[in-house]
Write a protein that binds this DNA or RNA. Structure first.
Lengths: 115, 115
DNA sequence: ACGACATTTCAGGAAGTATCGAAATGTAAT
DNA sequence: ATTACATTTCGATACTTCCTGAAATGTCGT
């Protein structure tokens, strides 16, 4: 993960339809969802969504596979992890003693809490 | 964390100077850096950086405090955590069995790995 | 091969964003 | 008070991004 890849990923998540798409795919898990199903669920046109999916794909946040006539998209968790790793690189100047509690405070509670 | 807050945070991180600023502040840890020091280190004008810092601040990714004549900015780790929590909400439809390994794969290795 | 379905690509105009120079605000020291 | 320093705000211009409508590509069943 380099700078421009990280910028692309954050830009991808900074648009409402794309953020909701990604969250929907996170909820869907490895099974993913077809492009049409996503478009219907979010209430956006297919061509608009297709453009957004292309941006998420280029950013490495989702993967796609063909299933019959449909194309199924799924969240790319490895890509997301690479992004977070880039963001937290050399946290606290690699001063583990100062950094570990901060990292720990970030990665707790993956679901449900308002923080 | 609601949708518009998350969008603001991702938009904040989707610009080169702001991403580098945030990463610099992550490296700096709780001590933070003054606006002037950041501007000098990144080689951007003060007024331009000030605009970017205002965007990071509004996005809840950094905090600021006054120190003498300088204003010191520091990364807001709680804000970052809230963002990740929002992103991973209801991961895999709250099917813990399927979700836990994915979450685990994401939160490992906060530093150093290329993934 | 044909018709129906699923998705993507293309070109256009509309809206938002980044940067700059200049001026303004606020803080500290003499 | 006045001078110097640190940061922010303002107005304008150039740039990028988003949505729409129409056409194109690719896949399946008959």
């Amino acid at each position: 993960m380099d700078r421009s890849a990280a910028l692309a990923a954050f830009a991808a998540l900074s648009q409402e339809t794309r953020l909701e798409t990604f969250r929907l795919l996170v909820k869907a898990g490895p099974a993913g969802r077809s492009a049409g199903a996503i478009a219907e669920q979010l209430g956006v046109r297919q061509n608009t969504l297709s453009s957004h999916l292309g941006i998420l794909l280029a950013a490495g946040l989702v993967g796609k596979r063909r299933d019959g006539r449909s194309i199924v998209y799924a969240a790319d968790f490895a890509g997301l992890r690479a992004l977070l790793t880039y963001l937290l690189e050399e946290c606290c100047g690699s001063d583990r003693a100062a950094c570990s509690p901060l990292i720990a405070s970030i990665i707790r509670a993956p679901s449900g809490e308002t923080s």
